[in-house]
């Protein structure tokens, strides 16, 4: 076991990219959980993965392919709001099937497929960091603006309609932001690590937050903390990042005694 690699400049960009995503993904996850739509994150991640593979096979940029596919999924989800979890499940199956078939039948897709499924953060480059930083500049203020409409849609669903306003555009905007962030995370961290960072840290926020803002802060801190430890462990133990990150986050849930039946 060697942790000297942690201080290697080669890993600074991947670490910074992941840390930024580990702060934003739990915030997206908080609102997805609020809407009982956390499964959508896995659908977005699978779609982003398939899109990235298709882009690579077509000799295009994987980052763009992943983002476009996830944004398409978010748009479909937003427009088919009534289909709910069924739409996410169908998207997941379609994307998973397509992705695995590509990996099995195209030599170029095989290595990239493993990186996406295993979560090899260390291949993340400066382009990922730049795009993620730009996304953060857009997503964080947008989330702050969308927070009230999203909470109102859950607790007072008739609030806007009673005032002659339509809340759907705001909800659709959130879907697109979620799709964008999950896609960036998928091509940087891998499918399941991205999903784990959307799904698990909000459980801390919901369990220990004293109000909505403190829950958001707790979720983001749990995401960044869990990510940082997972990054160090996977590098030091020479293990793929995705499984280490997902397992560590789940263990934290068990150790801290978060009761899932109360959520």
């Amino acid at each position: 076991m060697s942790f000297e690699l942690l201080f290697d400049p080669l890993f600074r960009v991947p670490f910074a990219t992941g840390l930024l995503l580990a702060a934003i993904l739990p915030l997206i996850g908080m609102y997805l959980r609020l809407r009982n739509e956390w499964l959508a994150a896995l659908a977005f991640a699978q779609m982003a993965s398939a899109g990235a593979l298709v882009a690579m096979v077509l000799d295009g940029p994987m980052l763009a392919g992943g983002v476009l596919a996830a944004l398409l999924a978010a748009l479909v989800k937003g427009l088919l709001a009534r289909a709910g979890a069924s739409a996410y499940a169908l998207m997941m199956l379609l994307a998973w099937g397509g992705g695995v078939l590509l990996v099995a039948n195209h030599p170029l897709a095989e290595q990239a497929g493993h990186a996406l499924f295993d979560g090899q953060l260390y291949f993340t480059g400066e382009a990922h960091l730049l795009v993620t930083a730009l996304a953060a500049v857009v997503v964080l203020p947008a989330l702050a603006w969308l927070s009230r409409p999203l909470l109102l849609a859950r607790f007072f669903p008739e609030f806007y309609r009673a005032r002659g306003q339509n809340e759907r555009p705001r909800l659709l905007l959130f879907d697109l932001l979620a799709g964008l962030v999950v896609a960036l995370a998928t091509v940087s961290l891998g499918v399941m690590a991205a999903f784990a960072l959307v799904f698990v840290p909000p459980l801390f926020g919901w369990r220990f937050g004293r109000g909505w803002r403190s829950a958001l802060v707790l979720a983001a801190l749990a995401g960044m903390g869990g990510y940082s430890v997972a990054f160090a462990l996977s590098l030091g133990l020479d293990q793929p990042f995705g499984p280490v990150c997902a397992s560590l986050l789940v263990m934290l849930i068990v150790v801290t005694g978060v009761k899932l039946d109360r959520m």
Binding site: R148, F155, W206, G211, W212
Partner: peptide
């Protein structure tokens, strides 16, 4: 399980 306070609810 929802982390919402009374202040949060009225603020909405």
């Amino acid at each position: 399980g929802v982390p919402l306070s009374g202040h949060d609810l009225l603020g909405l």
